[in-house]
């Protein structure tokens, strides 16, 4: 059967999708945060960022709605050592007719995907340690664009 095609999430999704974002602070694990920016390096203040990861053989999921500054904030509920690399990241936004998918590595493990990339582009998939976890910016478009995945 022909699959249903993707359409943009649009600008007005927050009231429908925010319920899944944890309201109280969670203490376990670590934080991944960063900004989503467009071709002009302007913040994408209406993006939806989701993460899927595997820790100790168990899949887990988190969702974040960007602030007007383009900043997102994901709580990964496991320790850095327990999380299998990479964490899969989806970005949805007005202007994106399909989601963009990328892979966030907590360290450069030099796997098949990373080794297939030229050194500069490879760096876009490596998160940087911060006092509370990791920083991972997503550049949707332009010169220093994040590597996005297909399958």
């Amino acid at each position: 059967m022909l699959p249903t095609p993707s359409q943009t999430v649009g600008p007005f999704f927050s009231f429908g999708l925010a319920w899944m974002v944890p309201q109280e602070p969670v203490d376990t694990g670590f934080v991944v945060e960063g900004v989503v920016v467009d071709k002009n390096a302007d913040p994408v203040g209406d993006a939806l960022v989701e993460a899927l990861w595997v820790a100790n053989g168990q899949a887990a999921f988190a969702r974040s709605l960007c602030e007007p500054t383009g900043r997102y904030h994901l709580r990964i509920t496991a320790s850095g050592n327990e999380v299998a690399s990479p964490i899969l990241v989806s970005v949805f936004a007005r202007g994106l007719l399909q989601r963009l998918v990328t892979a966030m590595y907590l360290t450069d493990i030099g796997d098949e995907l990373l080794c297939s990339l030229d050194p500069l582009r490879r760096q876009t998939l490596i998160a940087k340690p911060t006092p509370t976890g990791y920083a991972f910016d997503v550049i949707l478009s332009g010169e220093s664009e994040t590597v996005f995945l297909a399958w």
Partner: peptide
Amino acid sequence: SSAQRAPTQPLVVAPSRLVEVSFP
């Protein structure tokens, strides 16, 4: 609005074991 947000580089085909992860 796709002009400012659409990627300009070709997508990279990921090894399937990397992306075929089950949702919880």
